[in-house]
Write a protein that binds this DNA or RNA. Structure first.
Length: 596
RNA sequence: GCGACCGUGGUCUAGUCUGGUCUAGGACAAAGGCCUUCCAAGCCUUUAACCCGUGUUCAAAUCCCGGCGGUCGCACCA
């Protein structure tokens, strides 16, 4: 989608506002800036924190789940196990003539030369040479390939013997490496959701699109560990009828791109979404953004095409939001990660990360015991090989060996070379044992949110203009400042009275701002720009009866009530138990008399 | 990383083609004061910019080169 911006668009307006009011702006501006880095100013930091707290409330507190805060820098072993070291490293080649850079494997694939995943640099270069491949753009010769890693590498420790670490490109690995500890601290329950809000770094080649694609950003990764044999989520009953807007693979392949509007119940029944847990949290994600003021009709859940999905994931959806300049933009991803991560950490660390779950009742299980017949083996194989075979049998899954021998008549032992084990080589004894439970690696459903993108989307949907005035119509729950406290004029004791109320509300835990400079209208306008939902004005009547006026950011309506009532009333108002109109008696709109 | 276009106070811009009249003009914003009984009123004062670095020239915001940054397109975004 190509959008022409002859005039300033929403992004321009928001980046101006962001700079002027200390919301969000490019980092290191005094040194010319570095692309891919943005800083949050005083107002932005508050808003971002409120959005994160909102997320906590939705996904952690209300779901009875837990939170983790793990290290940003992790040793290389973590990323060897997670696959990031191989997958986040692109092997690139450059044209010596026009300087264009290519991923060597992509270049080969495009030219119909097959190369398998994880090929070494030498092997790729050899293919380039053998097929005498040159720059597809200008025909120039290509350089030797070099690895380009999207992860920031750091040396841990300063003297010799330091170890290599990386800045995490996602926070999720923290949950996996700490799984065992948290699982036991949380009394060994499944499903167990472990959330983490944290900074991540990726050394992107060419970050663009303002705060949409950053080199340092905040991610919320939420790992929901569950028993693969029980992937139901009881709370789904509560939201069955919620509508989801889904763009399935089929609609993308056929290029019709029609968004299906289905209830959660239908989505699951019709297999549009296969995993119940995944579906539940996607629905919650839609609700969450809706709660931030991003209407659900401006969102969609796009199913990732098989080629864009991670190889271990059987289904992945992106939650996308419509942004004026960039169209549909991913703000969260929802992936079924199977047991991939824990399995790999288990293999690399050697630590058993399986969980044990007792059966309701101990079960009688028929177990096969495969006993090698040493006499037969030794006549057919050398003594050494026979020993190897015996060892391999004992390490293998006896039930599987038994089943294969009985159905196929042989079982292939994975030695080098593979050895064909036949029924005559063993004696099979079926034994009845009592098992009280089973061990397994939990499977994981991962909703993952890009907070900076959600932050920007929230601003875009809150932004409103009235004449030459701008207003951030943020939901009051996430407003950076809850109320502005203004004396109508800066004399006659009104400032003193206003400051009393300011301190009272501060003491009561509200985020409030006091302002007495310029006309009252100008102060309202300033407050509107940073999304202050309520402006409280102290006027001459306050001096007589202690009542103040409250003005609503959206309607400009005013009501009047006693200032001593405010802490209680505001608390209810910000919890959404009271509407603005219920905060006091309406005030007639006044005309400005002084300016006539 | 490649290509095109672009970079002037806090924000938006005029000026760049055709070097000097620009120690840079305007609008809005901001700070201080006066005034002020409800939606950016008015008056006074103040702050404040040519992205960075070379070069060409008597003279550079303006022209050349390099860097950094931005937008768009391509590529990248397991």
């Amino acid at each position: 989608m190509v959008l022409e911006h002859m005039s300033t668009d929403l992004y321009d307006k928001i980046s101006n506002l962001g700079k002027r009011r200390g919301i969000i702006f490019p980092a290191f501006e005094i040194y010319g800036g570095v692309s891919g880095f943005f800083d949050y100013g005083p107002v932005g930091a508050l808003l971002k924190r409120n959005i994160e707290d909102r997320w906590r409330d939705f996904f952690v507190n209300k779901e009875g789940m837990v939170e983790l805060e793990s290290s940003l820098i992790m040793p290389s072993q973590v990323f060897e196990a997670s696959g990031h070291l191989s997958h986040f490293t692109d092997i690139m080649t450059k044209c010596t003539k026009c300087n264009r850079a290519y991923r060597t494997d992509n270049l080969l694939n495009e030219l119909g030369i097959e190369c398998r995943e994880g090929m070494k640099i030498d092997e790729l270069d050899k293919l380039v040479e053998e097929n005498s491949i040159r720059c597809p753009e200008c025909g120039g010769a290509l350089t030797k390939s070099e690895p380009f890693n999207l992860m920031f590498q750091v040396k841990i420790g300063s003297y010799g013997g330091s170890i290599i670490g990386y800045g995490r490109p996602e926070v999720a690995q923290g949950q996996f490496v700490n799984f065992k500890r948290i699982y036991s601290a949380e009394r060994e329950r499944l499903p167990l959701g472990i959330a983490q809000i944290g900074r991540c770094v990726r050394n992107e080649i060419a970050p663009r699109k303002g705060p949409i694609r950053l080199r340092e950003f905040t991610i919320i990764d939420y790992e929901i560990f569950m028993d693969p044999e029980n992937t139901s989520y009881s709370r789904i009953k509560l939201v069955e009828d919620q509508k989801l807007r889904i763009l399935p693979i089929s609609e993308q392949v056929s290029k019709t791109n029609k968004i299906l509007e289905v209830t959660i119940k239908e989505a699951l029944e019709e297999g549009i979404v296969k995993n119940q847990v995944l579906c539940y949290f996607m629905a919650l994600a839609v609700k969450f953004l809706d709660n931030l003021g991003i209407p659900s009709e401006k969102q969609r859940l796009r199913e990732q095409l098989p080629e864009e999905r991670a190889h271990y994931s059987s289904e992945t959806f992106d939650q996308e939001v419509w942004l004026e300049r960039w169209g549909w933009t991913e703000v969260s991803g929802h992936a079924y990660r199977s047991d991939y991560d824990l399995r790999n950490h288990m293999a690399h660390s050697g630590v058993d990360l399986r969980v044990y779950k007792a059966f309701d009742q101990p079960k009688k299980v028929i177990k096969a015991i495969v006993k090698p017949r040493i006499d037969v083996l030794e006549t057919e194989f050398s003594r050494e090989d026979a020993q190897k075979i015996i060892s391999l049998i004992s390490k293998g899954d006896q039930n599987i060996i038994e089943r294969e021998l009985k159905t196929k008549g042989f079982y292939e032992l994975t030695g080098l070379p593979p050895i064909r084990l036949e029924l005559k080589h063993v004696e099979i004894i079926m034994e009845e044992v009592i098992e009280s439970g089973r061990s397994f690696i939990p499977h994981v459903v991962e909703p993952s949110f890009g907070i900076d993108r959600i932050f920007y989307s929230t601003l875009e949907y809150a932004f409103a203009e009235k004449g030459n005035r701008m207003t951030l119509k943020l939901p009051k729950e996430i407003a950076p400042i809850s109320a502005g406290i203004f004396p109508l004029v800066s004399r006659d004791g009104l400032p003193e009275e206003a400051k009393k109320l300011y301190e009272l509300l501060q003491d009561e835990g509200f985020k409030v701002r006091y302002d007495e400079s310029d006309s009252i209208g100008r102060r309202y306008a300033r407050a509107d720009e940073i999304g202050v939902p309520l402006c409280i004005t102290i006027d001459y009547q306050t001096l007589q009866d202690k009542t103040v006026t409250l003005r609503d950011i959206n309607t400009w309506k005013q009501i009047r009530n006693k200032s001593t009532e405010l802490p209680q009333l505001l608390r209810e108002y910000f919890k959404n138990r009271l509407q603005f109109d219920e905060l006091g008696k309406p005030v007639e709109q006044r005309k400005n008399q002084s300016h006539n």
